[in-house]
Design a protein around this nucleic acid. Structure first.
Length: 210
DNA sequence: GATTGGATCTACT
DNA sequence: GTAGATCCAATCG
């Protein structure tokens, strides 16, 4: 698989987010690969986005987001969970795409071993789940997405319906429709927060309705 | 130095 | 449907 070059990521974050759907994310551990197809993403764009970690300016935690595009921004949250993002836009502008769900395709035995779940769709249908399944941690923060450890490439979703909705798990800026997913994928995250069902998806390209 | 809250998940009721 | 786990980084004193 030929990995996508930094120029792919150095564009508008929303364009990159949609263009990532359907592509493969692989983790190479001593030659053995595990990973899958990206089916759900969210965009976090700039210091004016209240949900973005860069909202309060540059810090030691979010500094990778200010760096060049095409790298992984990995951070720890909720005491248990690593989150995987891909840095986008030009160097100096803090933005990233959060990878929220995968369709596992490579290294299934390894993934099953790491994830103590019963149902297959629970393996990687959430941002904390997929990092646990692929064993992505803070050591991958700042790593290139062209390898050797992290690899992103392959064709984008071709003709599959894509939907968008508000972002999950954030308060400020939750209504901004910057979450994108493959509408027909059973691997999309089902997590709900605060008893509130996630907002229903809107097919991209459909006329705006009131 | 201490406190607080977070881009979540699992288990249990 | 809801609580507990679990810890780092940012913020405040």
């Amino acid at each position: 698989m030929r990995p996508l070059p930094p120029a792919f990521y150095g564009r508008s974050t929303l364009a990159v987010a949609v263009d990532l759907l359907g592509r493969e994310l692989l983790v190479n551990e001593n030659g053995s690969l595990c990973g899958g197809r990206i089916v759900e993403v969210e965009a976090y764009i700039g210091e004016n986005d209240p949900a973005c970690h860069a909202h309060r300016g540059r810090t030691t935690r979010n500094r990778v987001m200010y760096g060049p595009p095409g790298r992984a921004y990995v951070y720890f949250t909720y005491g248990n969970h690593w989150m995987l993002n891909f840095v986008t836009e030009r160097e100096g502008f803090p933005a990233a795409v959060l990878i929220r769900a995968l369709e596992p395709r490579a290294g299934l035995p390894t993934i099953w071993n790491r994830r103590r779940v019963r149902r297959e769709y629970d393996l990687t249908n959430g941002p904390g789940k997929l990092t646990a399944a692929l064993r992505i941690t803070g050591e991958d923060n700042g790593a290139s997405l062209e390898g050797p450890r992290l690899l992103v490439g392959g064709p984008c979703a071709n003709g599959e319906p894509v939907a968008r909705s508000g972002r999950v798990g954030v308060d400020a800026g939750a209504d901004v429709p910057w979450r994108f997913y493959l509408a027909n994928s059973p691997w999309v995250s089902s997590y709900r927060r605060g008893g509130r069902a996630r907002s229903a998806g809107i097919p991209i390209g459909s006329p705006a309705t009131s």
